[in-house]
């Protein structure tokens, strides 16, 4: 049984994510997971063992805050350093259309492993567009509400009280998406190749054409050459 599709260097490959995108993606992954597990020590009840991994609740608290600051820096690096990519990403999300709705309707079958004929997708398919909307929004809310709770005395008390449920809701939504995203971007046989897109930066050309036909045609296909 194969977990992740093998990386094939000897077939034609096309670039999917540039270095800064990949660097900030994995920086965000590490800090998010550290924040998640240190935060769950408080969110869940009776998980002293989870806090013990980080040296008790005081240690978990420290790791949570250090990771949160690094996560904030990573997000700022992405937004400033990769501004063009960010705009292209947002534009791609805004292309949400009929093909994305069809994708989302067919996706549960593909998710379970049935073979379905999916309409051509742009750089990000319907599901990825959904993830691209929910997770960054949740992370922005996590960061804002987190700093409000960290420095409660400089904010109005009503805002601090609101930050608690917001931090939890955003955490649950983001973690739910991260569970799906992590699985689909690695062990899911249909989409596992996209792991190499985020790890090495390139994906197999035939995979790109098969899974993201609109993007492939516009970027590397006949349409791009015609321009």
């Amino acid at each position: 049984m194969q977990l992740i599709p093998e990386y094939k260097a000897d077939v034609p490959r096309v670039e999917r994510f540039n270095f800064l995108s990949r660097f900030t993606h994995w920086g965000h992954t590490v800090t998010f997971l550290l924040c998640l597990f240190t935060g769950l020590a408080l969110f869940l009840n009776n998980v002293d063992w989870l806090a013990a991994i980080f040296g008790g609740y005081a240690g978990a608290n420290l790791v949570h805050r250090i990771s949160a600051v690094i996560m904030t820096i990573v997000v700022v690096i992405f937004v400033i350093g990769n501004f063009k990519v960010l705009i292209a990403w947002i534009k791609d999300i805004l292309r949400f259309g009929m093909n994305d709705i069809k994708f989302l309707l067919l996706f549960p079958l593909e998710f379970l492993g049935f073979k379905v004929k999916v309409p051509p997708q742009t750089k990000f398919n319907g599901g990825e567009k959904g993830n691209s909307m929910v997770t960054p929004t949740a992370v922005i809310f996590l960061i804002l509400s987190g700093y409000i709770m960290w420095f409660p005395t400089i904010f109005p008390a009503g805002l601090v009280r609101l930050a608690y449920p917001i931090h939890d809701i955003a955490m649950v939504l983001a973690t739910m998406m991260v569970c799906m995203h992590g699985y689909l971007g690695s062990f899911h046989p249909g989409s596992g190749e996209s792991f190499w897109g985020m790890w090495k930066g390139t994906v197999r050309e035939d995979w790109a054409e098969h899974h993201h036909k609109t993007w492939y045609d516009e970027t590397y296909g006949d349409k791009s050459k015609a321009e």
């Binding site: 049984m1 969110f43 869940l44 998710f111 379970l112 492993g113 049935f114 939890d168 809701i169 649950v172 939504l173 973690t175 739910m176 998406m177 569970c179 799906m180 992590g182 699985y183 689909l184 062990f187 899911h188 046989p189 249909g190």
Partner: peptide, 22 residues
């Protein structure tokens, strides 16, 4: 609200098995 997380994990686990069986 937190139950959404185990649901997402469970869904992924089911998919991990069914995709390979199919």
């Amino acid at each position: 609200f937190g139950w959404l997380i185990p649901i997402a994990l469970g869904g992924s686990a089911i998919s991990f098995v069914t995709t390979r069986i199919l």
